[in-house]
Design a protein around this nucleic acid. Structure first.
Lengths: 112, 112
DNA sequence: CATATTATTTCTACATTGTAGAACAAATCT
DNA sequence: AGATTTGTTCTACAATGTAGAAATAATATG
């Protein structure tokens, strides 16, 4: 499997899935995106990204059992696959490495 | 000026410019990208991204004086603008915040 | 000083990601 | 059964990511 690129929005969505755990379904993820970033996003944008992430093998999904809440279709719950976690780690490593080398940032990072 | 989105590749290129300082010109940036990420990239890809970053106002550029080296056209040296630095900081803040909330990562981050 | 050579930029074109909204489906309540 | 609610999936288009060739400008050397 080739090392597919991981876009900016894709990465954030991936992280959001990891954070939401068993609550990670499309609608909730879109909501969480808005609260965490302060920017709005459509369901469609969220869905197609989630979908691509699955096709790349970075995410897996399964349908949940119906809940006790009023109505509603069954949720599709997403979770991070092993290779998704690897991609996230690789991205973090690259970024922290670059930040450390950027003078304007490395100064601020000395507060340990 | 609207808050233009900052793609993944764009962000890395921006950081590379900050790291290379007065050596930040297209060819050198492309080289540095390869050594830092281990992935190859074309000049064209690097150039058009640099160009977009300028148009978004995140980067500025100026032609350098000719050097004492054999031949070659004058270099266009890039540098990060104030709003570029702000964009980078905002991106870093969002990421570190999300990483801290992602259980698989926050465990690993306790080694202070 | 004309020309070969080299370093670097710029142009053109296409693939992949980012983005939105409407249509559709399946639960539960009355 | 029909209305209502929660959620998913489809279709289409804009922005970002990517490559390679062509153009340009500087120096060295015969």
């Amino acid at each position: 499997m080739k090392d597919a690129r991981l876009g900016e929005f894709e990465e954030i969505i991936l992280l959001l899935v990891g954070i939401l755990e068993d609550k990670a379904y499309t609608l909730r993820i879109a909501e969480e995106f808005e609260t965490q970033t302060g920017k709005s996003v459509s369901i469609g944008a969220t869905h197609s990204t989630l979908d691509r992430l699955c096709k790349k093998g970075l995410l897996k999904s399964e349908l949940s059992e119906p809940t006790a809440v009023r109505g509603g279709r069954r949720k599709r719950i997403f979770s991070i696959s092993a290779s998704g976690e690897r991609a996230l780690l690789a991205s973090r490593d690259l970024r922290t490495s670059l930040w450390d080398q950027y003078p304007a940032f490395s100064k601020l990072s000395l507060n340990i």
